[in-house]
Simulated scan of single mutants.
Amino acid sequence: MTTWVRCHWDEEDIWFYFEVDAEGWVTRQVELQGPELTPIAAASLDEWRQAHDAGRLDEYDSRFGITAELPVSEWADHDPEQLTFEAFEEVWGSARGQIASRPG
């Protein structure tokens, strides 16, 4: 079962939005920073794997970032807010559009 959550990291003023699969792995991740909620990452695990297989991992990472490398069950002090699929998709679509439109 897929779930969608968000949490805030006060130290860097970053909102993290996660799509998490049934095993607890992050499949998509968005990071929005500061009061303007500037997108700094909008990564997909499937796209990351495709970029890796194609030898374009550095290009993908520098543009879209990466997803969390541990399942959420292993995160300390993680107390996320549940989201709906629609709420996650709205944030995902906006962040991806903004990042993709930036000069490469």
Rank of each mutant, 00 (worst) to 15 (best):
residue 32 L to V: 03
residue 46 D to I: 09
residue 62 S to F: 04
residue 6 R to M: 15
residue 22 A to Q: 09
residue 72 V to K: 03
residue 45 L to K: 13
residue 100 A to M: 13
residue 44 S to L: 06
residue 11 E to C: 03
residue 6 R to C: 13
residue 104 G to I: 05
residue 2 T to R: 14
residue 37 L to I: 00
residue 101 S to D: 15
residue 23 E to K: 08
residue 85 F to W: 12
residue 72 V to F: 05
residue 93 G to N: 04
residue 64 F to K: 01
residue 31 E to P: 00
residue 59 E to V: 07
residue 67 T to Y: 01
residue 96 R to T: 04
residue 84 T to C: 11
residue 34 G to D: 04
residue 56 R to M: 13
residue 60 Y to T: 10
residue 16 F to C: 06
residue 42 A to F: 01
residue 91 V to W: 03
residue 32 L to A: 01
residue 87 A to H: 10
residue 89 E to M: 14
residue 66 I to N: 13
residue 67 T to N: 08
residue 12 E to W: 06
residue 54 A to V: 05
residue 82 Q to C: 07
residue 102 R to F: 06
residue 31 E to H: 04
residue 42 A to G: 03
residue 4 W to D: 00
residue 23 E to F: 00
residue 42 A to W: 00
residue 77 D to G: 10
residue 61 D to C: 09
residue 35 P to I: 00
residue 22 A to W: 00
residue 1 M to R: 12
residue 1 M to F: 08
residue 73 S to I: 12
residue 16 F to W: 07
residue 67 T to R: 02
residue 79 D to V: 14
residue 56 R to E: 15
residue 66 I to V: 13
residue 35 P to R: 06
residue 47 E to I: 01
residue 57 L to F: 06
residue 4 W to T: 02
residue 92 W to T: 10
residue 45 L to H: 08
residue 87 A to W: 03
residue 79 D to E: 15
residue 63 R to W: 02
residue 94 S to P: 01
residue 12 E to R: 07
residue 39 P to H: 03
residue 35 P to G: 08
residue 13 D to R: 09
residue 77 D to H: 14
residue 90 E to H: 08
residue 64 F to V: 05
residue 6 R to Y: 07
residue 94 S to H: 09
residue 48 W to P: 00
residue 4 W to M: 04
residue 35 P to F: 02
residue 87 A to C: 11
residue 60 Y to E: 10
residue 39 P to T: 05
residue 20 V to M: 05
residue 13 D to P: 02
residue 22 A to I: 04
residue 92 W to Q: 09
residue 47 E to K: 04
residue 104 G to W: 03
residue 43 A to Q: 02
residue 71 P to H: 11
residue 45 L to C: 05
residue 20 V to A: 04
residue 18 F to W: 12
residue 94 S to T: 14
residue 36 E to K: 07
residue 94 S to Q: 12
residue 5 V to M: 08
residue 66 I to P: 00
residue 65 G to T: 06
residue 38 T to G: 00
residue 91 V to L: 10
residue 80 P to N: 14
residue 48 W to Q: 13
residue 55 G to Y: 06
residue 53 D to E: 15
residue 100 A to K: 14
residue 74 E to Q: 15
residue 14 I to K: 01
residue 33 Q to L: 04
residue 36 E to L: 09
residue 92 W to P: 03
residue 4 W to R: 02
residue 81 E to Y: 08
residue 76 A to H: 11
residue 2 T to H: 11
residue 18 F to N: 03
residue 21 D to V: 04
residue 7 C to Q: 07
residue 65 G to N: 07
residue 80 P to M: 13
residue 92 W to D: 06
residue 77 D to T: 10
residue 20 V to C: 06
residue 97 G to N: 13
residue 65 G to K: 03
residue 7 C to Y: 11
residue 48 W to V: 01
